[in-house]
Computed example of a mutant assay.
Amino acid sequence: MAAALLIGMAVCAAGCLVFRAGNWVSVSAAQKELPIYSVERKDKVCALTFDAAWGNEDTQQLIDILKTENIQATFFVVGAWVDKYPESVKALSDAGHEVMNHSATHPHMPDLSTEQMTEEVQSCNEKIKAITGVQPTLFRPPYGDYNNAVISTMRSIGMYSIQWDVDSLDWRNPAPSEITKRVVENAQNGSIILFHNAAVNTPAALPSVIAGLKAKGFSFLPVSKLIYTENYTMDHTGRQIPNTVG
């Protein structure tokens, strides 16, 4: 046993050995970093989010629908989209929606160095702030693609990384009724729901999505007001758990 303990101590730099069922088992010391997928809430509240990376066919329609429903949403925009459609960025901000960061060029972030990740995000932040006057604090990785380095790099520059736990799959162009069914059936307290601008059937589906969620008792917050910024832990699914559930 003494020899086994010495072996265990020797490998602690790479991981840990634990004595389990009569054998020493290696357990990685590194903990997987996770973005925020959802939030533990007692109240029936969720967030509508839209990624804007390519087209701009329906941005004003989405603004008009959300205005009618008196809902503030969060739009994650790519820096190149900001360059191409600055008037839409201003319209989103003027309508009371959050305009947050979806990178400068929509790369696979894990393929980049820490310096390149930082440049991608800070460049996009500068473009958004120049139009809205607001410094973004939330980042959604393009393609939902991340690793430990992405999450820790974002944290080091003051950004919360945001995923989703309900995917409308609107980019596949399903019928509006399919989008509605998928979102309404899967939403739970603290859900972050993913849509895209320039998806063919999202404007047609959005009113019925909202009606269905309201019928289940949901109200809506932008992501920055849904998440916790201190005194929380993360479970293995990426769900924020506050020290005191609100």
Rank of each mutant, 00 (worst) to 15 (best):
I131E: 08
C124E: 08
G158E: 01
S177A: 15
S123N: 15
L138E: 14
L169R: 12
Q135P: 00
W171G: 08
S168T: 13
L169W: 09
T180P: 04
E120K: 02
M117Y: 01
M117V: 07
T180R: 15
G133Y: 06
D145A: 12
M117E: 14
W171N: 06
K129E: 15
G144L: 06
Q163E: 15
I162W: 04
D165P: 03
W171F: 12
M154G: 02
R182Y: 08
A130L: 10
N148C: 03
S161W: 08
T137W: 02
Y146R: 06
K129D: 09
E120C: 06
P174N: 09
I151T: 13
Y146S: 02
G158W: 05
Q163S: 11
E178P: 00
K127Y: 12
T118D: 00
I128A: 02
N125L: 06
D170A: 11
Y143F: 12
R140Q: 07
S156R: 11
P141I: 07
G133R: 05
R182P: 05
Q116F: 00
K127G: 12
P141R: 03
N125P: 08
P141V: 05
D145Y: 05
Y160D: 15
I179Q: 11
S177P: 00
S177I: 11
R140F: 12
V150Q: 03
T153P: 01
S177K: 13
T118C: 00
D165F: 07
D167L: 10
P141A: 10
Q122A: 08
D145T: 03
T180C: 15
G158V: 01
I131Y: 05
F139M: 10
V183F: 08
R182N: 14
Q135G: 03
S177E: 15
W164L: 09
R155V: 04
M154L: 13
S123Y: 09
K129I: 06
I157A: 02
V166M: 10
L169K: 10
V183G: 03
L169E: 13
